[in-house]
Amino acid sequence: MESLLINQTTQTPRIAFDAESGNGEIIGVSFPEHANDLYACVHEWIDQYFAEDASKTLHVAFNLNYFNTATNKEIRLLMKFLDKHHSEEKAVRITWFHEEGDEDMEDIGKGYSVSLNVPVSVEAV
């Protein structure tokens, strides 16, 4: 299957998921007009990735320094989606990067590491 690559813009993050390594990253800022359209393709890609081979591993790295409320909701949905795959015995893990000293972003990551079963590692960069 093909890797997923959406280049960064001034209002959207770089979204890159590698079909070979199973490493995905969402990096930058996110305040698009239609956040749901942007993140829907990530759900599709992940479903397809595990449909091909359920024994593959997936590591998703979030490294966002700003997102709007509509994106916040999309990230929540994506996290739950990853949690669902994890509950179906898929090898999924998440790293949530935040800038050193950015407590807002750190708190969001820590919230996910507590509320989800899928492993979420919160790391300062």
């Binding site: 001034t10 305040f31 320094n65 700003y66 409320t69 950015d102 807002d104």
Partner: peptide, 27 residues
Amino acid sequence: VVDLGSLLQNRLGFDVKVRRMFGIFVE
């Protein structure tokens, strides 16, 4: 909105406190 946001970033940078203000500005 995106252009005004770029203008703000050019003027003020994008450190954690500017980002908090920027978030409110975009909202």
